[in-house]
């Protein structure tokens, strides 16, 4: 533990005081834990038959694994589409032609301003009037794509803008077209610099698949209902699903940390690495309330 700049290294009196505070905090924690435990106990939440289903392979085969597949498939398809959407609209917004950059900006700003749940509901209800079969999967995935893709577009754009001007000037000087400059010089560097922020946004996307629950898409949270229907164990099922989510996000967070450490070490970019310096990017990711990335 490195000493914080906010307080002096505690002396004997400070150490004693810290011990007292720690003891009080621990006592408060224990008290809360005991209340939760005993209340859950009195309503029978610890009864074995609410928990033993999770030891049965059937429960995993019939409920949790299908739910996990639902969550992960929406995540995978949504992530791929969102990244693609992000690239297209980042490049569009950086275009020198106003006919491209202005509409791109409008699209990106619009989808960032609308609650994702409303987007998903809109797509869900819009399918039938358009003559399509109503698919809740695509409502969820397209909602994920439009919002997270718009956030990613801003992340990528900020990455390109953070590169030194000399990079694109040098490209133009050796006779590359604007498209070639973007493709071969700016984007590769911007993506490398922004990779941690991009992965952080994917953690957000993973969490947002849970909105599919509200549309009755068969993902992890919906399995809580099914488990509850079978075993009458709403709270235990919700706790197990919460643990699965935390584990999934932890894995993604570790990937993000690993990538961040790598980009820092390799450092093949001309621009500043990482995103904390750029207020735009900070704003973009904060808007999505990223989770997971430590």
């Amino acid at each position: 533990m490195s000493a914080s700049v906010l307080y002096d290294a505690p002396g004997p009196r400070g150490k004693a005081l810290n011990l007292v505070y720690s003891a009080v905090a621990l006592a408060a924690l224990a008290w809360v834990a005991w209340i939760v435990y005993s209340k859950f106990d009195s309503t029978g939440q610890w009864e074995a038959d609410k928990w033993t289903p999770f030891l049965e392979s059937q429960t995993w085969e019939n409920f949790l694994i299908p739910g996990l597949i639902g969550t992960l498939s929406a995540f995978a398809v949504g992530a791929v589409l969102a990244v693609a959407f992000g690239f297209v609209f980042a490049v569009g917004r950086l275009s020198q032609s106003r006919f491209i950059s202005v509409p791109s900006a409008v699209v990106v700003e619009f989808f960032r301003a609308i609650p994702m749940l409303l987007l998903m509901m809109f797509i869900y209800f819009m399918q039938q009037p358009l003559g399509l079969d109503t698919s809740v999967f695509w409502a969820v995935v397209l909602g994920l794509m439009l919002y997270n893709g718009s956030v990613l577009a801003e992340v990528i754009r900020a990455g390109v803008n953070a590169l030194p001007k000399g990079q694109s000037e040098a490209g133009v000087a050796i006779g590359l077209s604007p498209g070639q400059v973007m493709r071969t010089i700016l984007l590769p560097q911007a993506v490398r610099a922004m990779l941690p922020a991009i992965i952080a946004q994917l953690v957000v996307l993973l969490k947002d698949t849970a909105l599919g629950y509200i549309l009755a898409y068969s993902e992890l949270l919906n399995q809580i209902n099914k488990l509850d229907g079978n075993f009458d164990n709403l709270i235990p099922a919700a706790l197990v699903v919460a643990l699965i989510y935390i584990a999934l996000n932890t894995i993604l967070g570790l990937v993000a940390n690993f990538v961040e450490a790598r980009t820092r070490r390799v450092g093949h970019t001309a621009g500043p690495v990482g995103h904390a310096e750029d207020p735009n990017v900070q704003t973009a990711t904060a808007a999505g309330m990223p989770g997971g990335n430590a």
């Binding site: 392979s57 995993w60 085969e61």
Partner: peptide, 19 residues
């Protein structure tokens, strides 16, 4: 082991179905 194998099998089956 059997239970885990069954769970993995179900996952693989579901995966191949999706594929």
């Amino acid at each position: 082991f059997k239970k885990i194998a069954a769970a993995v099998g179900a996952l693989a089956l579901a995966g191949s179905l999706a594929a």
